[in-house]
Simulated scan of single mutants.
Amino acid sequence: MAQRLATFLDGATRTLDVAIYDLRLEESPANTLMNSFASAVKRGVVVRLMFNQDHAQTIPVPPPPEIDWGFVERLRAAGVSVKPVPGVPDLMHHKYVVRDGLSVLTGSTNWTNDSWNREENVMLTIESTEIAADFALNFQGLWDKPVVATSGHFSAPWRSLGDGTRVRPYFCPGRSLKLVHAMSRSIASAERRIRVCSPVITSGPILGSLAEACAAQKVDIAGVYDATQMDEVQHQWAANGGSAWKIGAFKSVIAAARWGAKRSTPYAVGSVHDFMHAKILVADEYVYVGSFNLSHSGESNAENVIQVESQAIADICASYIDRVAARYGGAALPVTP
Rank of each mutant, 00 (worst) to 15 (best):
L33T: 07
N113S: 04
V72K: 03
T202H: 01
V272G: 01
L23V: 14
E73Y: 09
Y170Q: 06
A2G: 10
I316F: 05
D274M: 10
F139Y: 15
R327K: 15
R192E: 14
V335N: 09
F51Q: 10
R159T: 10
N121I: 01
I254D: 02
L207S: 03
E232F: 04
I313K: 11
D231W: 00
M50D: 00
V233C: 11
K145W: 01
D68Y: 04
G241C: 10
F37D: 02
V61L: 05
I313G: 08
H94M: 11
H94C: 12
G44Q: 05
Y267E: 01
R175S: 08
S103G: 04
N304Q: 14
M230V: 13
V219I: 08
W259F: 15
L5Q: 04
A302H: 07
V46N: 12
M230C: 10
A239I: 03
R159V: 11
L177I: 13
H235S: 13
R175P: 00
W259Q: 11
M123F: 00
A38W: 00
Q236M: 14
L5M: 11
A332F: 01
S39D: 13
L105K: 08
D163Y: 07
S155V: 15
F51T: 12
N240G: 06
F8H: 06
H277F: 03
T13P: 00
V85P: 01
K279S: 04
R118I: 01
P334H: 07
D284W: 05
G141K: 05
D68W: 05
S300R: 08
F71V: 08
N52T: 03
K42F: 00
L49T: 07
Y320V: 12
L333V: 10
R263G: 06
V272T: 12
A314I: 08
A78D: 02
Y320K: 13
P65N: 15
E27K: 14
W259N: 09
H273I: 04
E303Q: 12
A56N: 09
R159L: 02
N113R: 03
S36W: 01
G11Y: 00
V272M: 08
S295D: 02
